[in-house]
Design a protein around this nucleic acid. Sequence first.
DNA 1: CACGTTTATGCAACTAGTTGCACAAGCGGC
DNA 2: GCCGCTTGTGCAACTAGTTGCATAAACGTG
Lengths: 184, 184
Amino acid sequence: MSLPHAILTALLEKPSSGLELTRRFDKSIGYFWSATHQQIYRELGKLEGEGLIRALPSEQPARGQRKSYEVLPAGRAELARWTAVAQDPKPLRDTLLLRLRASAVVGTAGLEADLRRHLELHRRQLAEYQQIERRDFPPERDTPQDRLRHLVLRAGIDLETFWTQWLSHALAEFPEPSDDGRTG
Amino acid sequence: MSLPHAILTALLEKPSSGLELTRRFDKSIGYFWSATHQQIYRELGKLEGEGLIRALPSEQPARGQRKSYEVLPAGRAELARWTAVAQDPKPLRDTLLLRLRASAVVGTAGLEADLRRHLELHRRQLAEYQQIERRDFPPERDTPQDRLRHLVLRAGIDLETFWTQWLSHALAEFPEPSDDGRTG
DNA sequence: CACGTTTATGCAACTAGTTGCACAAGCGGC
DNA sequence: GCCGCTTGTGCAACTAGTTGCATAAACGTG
């Protein structure tokens, strides 16, 4: 439902080929809307068919036969429309919480190790976000665009902070190995 | 991938019919793994076919022709297995953040109202969780099971707290109406 | 110059979740 | 006793996202 709009946003920021988009998704927009290259190519085809983007005619030859796309006015209009439409927040779906809940009835065996692993992953992600913040949002730059993008990054930072804290807390009060929380 | 395990957990906590499960999903497990009644019925059929649950033979007659299910040993084993298996956290996917990012290029028109609406929704959800916490987790009850379930609820509470704070912050530094953050 | 590797594009099939609808039985009232 | 409402169960079709694979050009190296 949102992938086409994620792609439109990325292409407005900078016209790109499928592969460039894939790379930029891996390290920017993909932080809050991930996509594989297969999804991206498929969607680029659709968007072109709908007249929302077009292939840049200029640079054709180079290696492979890469095509770069740019957003057409209709595409920009569609993105603006979609941005303004009210949408309900989608309900939380988290397997780790589900597993914790399940462990209250079937025992916590094996779970603690994975909690530690998640904690480490979230710490890493947090560090990565903080590095991006230092690099891309120094105090002096402060256009409205910067402020909006910084807000998005702050959400990522604060979410990872939440997870690291919650996981630390969870591990701290985890049942002893001998007491696995099993009911029957 | 996880719906069957959510159902197994719910059925272990208490054998139920499809409708009862649906209701309990709406106000408990569904907070972190939502499901519609259609999904639940379909999955109950599958689980029964796989021999992980069975219909309780006893109470057949009543209204409609409701069937209650209970978990078989194979089902409990499968849940325990799944709980212990390492799983990667699934990447964040959030349309609101995407829209905010898009608004940096196409303008923030219409977005602020929806941010306010989301703030209100998250405040409500937070209040609901806090009420559940007061009701279900008074200080004196403290079995390992309680502590695990309380941890899950705490995650919900802290997440909603994060969103209300972040949304408040976002609204506070939102561009003035005359300045909509548009680039070109 | 042949052979494996990287770059780049893309199709097809599968899985999970959502939406829309169907149907049957009891319930409540006029 | 019929009519509309609610309860309870369920199928079918659709949508979004994932996984696995196919293809082809250029590159680099022995």
